[in-house]
């Protein structure tokens, strides 16, 4: 498969950047004639991943979040959200619906389940005190317009 386009950005883990990340991914994906449904899914999945960095990875600090995406000629979109925060002690637990370590702030525990449900593939790589990388893949239904 051939790479058609790619972006890679870095921004601070401020909650204002949650909407910023949604705008960026929407603008990037829009080039490939996605359906409205695809855009909604991708926006939601990215919002969840970036919010996790803000809320959990850099809980008591501020750090950089790296958001990148690649789009291939077979219609595959690969999104990577990376942080250098605290890491996830138990990924299996974190992936479980309604599991949260932050119930007092009304976190619903549905972040990873939503990423999983709204994309075709979700991979989480994490190391304690080193950071977490979330890789999501989604096939966008329409043919690329470029």
């Amino acid at each position: 498969m051939k790479l058609l386009n790619e972006f890679n950005i870095k921004f601070l883990s401020k909650s204002e950047n949650e909407s910023f990340s949604r705008i960026v991914i929407t603008a990037f994906v829009s080039q490939f004639s996605p359906t409205v449904e695809d855009i909604a899914d991708i926006k939601t999945a990215v919002s969840e991943a970036v919010t996790n960095c803000v809320v959990h990875a850099y809980k008591n600090s501020t750090g950089y979040i790296q958001l990148s995406a690649k789009y291939y000629d077979n219609g595959k979109l690969r999104i990577i959200v990376k942080d250098k925060g605290c890491g996830i002690p138990d990924i299996e637990k974190a992936r479980k619906p309604l599991y949260t370590t932050d119930a007092e702030n009304e976190r619903s525990g549905m972040g990873f389940p939503i990423m999983e449900s709204f994309t075709d593939k979700l991979r989480i790589i994490s190391q304690l005190n080193k950071g977490t990388t979330v890789v999501m893949e989604k096939n966008i239904g329409c043919k690329p317009s470029i």
Binding site: S47, T51, S108, I114
Partner: peptide, 13 residues
């Protein structure tokens, strides 16, 4: 127009 799991937390709360 848009809601993620934070909105879900708001509703559940």
């Amino acid at each position: 127009d848009f809601m993620d799991s934070s909105g879900l937390g708001l509703i559940m709360g």
